[in-house]
Amino acid sequence: MDSYRIFLTGVGGQGTLLATMVLAEAAICAGHNALASEVHGMAQRGGVVESTVMIGDIKSSTISDGEADVLLGFEPVETYRAMRKCSADSVVISNSVPVTPYTVAIGKATYPEVGRLFAFISDRVKKLITLNAQALAEQAGSAVSANVVMVGALARSGVLPIPREAFEETIRTKTKARFVEANLRAFDLGFSAL
């Protein structure tokens, strides 16, 4: 089968690592080989968190510049910052809700217009999908489930050979029991948003 390289980026506290795990486990649940890679350590709350998921016949766990098939961005500026990982063939799915960096909060930098970021990206990649994952997560009854909303949108995009059921099975069996219902609702809202 073909192989797929997915790059995930977000801000500490957004749950990118849970999304990474759900995506990799769902791929395995669907019968594929999968790998994931994450960087721990100095990534404090509020810093950038990047991770990868590889699906298919592939051994490398990192993605070189220009080689991501899919970029899943949990925050608009971080989606933009990670554009180096994409090429004209990439599909980009991004949350549209900013998380204000501290440098912006104290007036040392300014946050760019989200529309400009997305216009730049949209002109250069195969497809850009954006959604307000925050609002959908709140609608699902759990503000912290925006990460699973994003996974739902990725599932619906049809870019990856993973059926919806595999994601739902993974959410049921691999996420914390008390969040399962909220996560399933969040996944569904992300899935239905496209």
Partner: peptide, 25 residues
Amino acid sequence: SPPTPINVKEGTGPVKVPMRPPNLC
């Protein structure tokens, strides 16, 4: 021939984005 990464530093209308340095909580 290697793939061509999207260049966020050059080209038409690149956007200046703020840094996110780590910070004590």
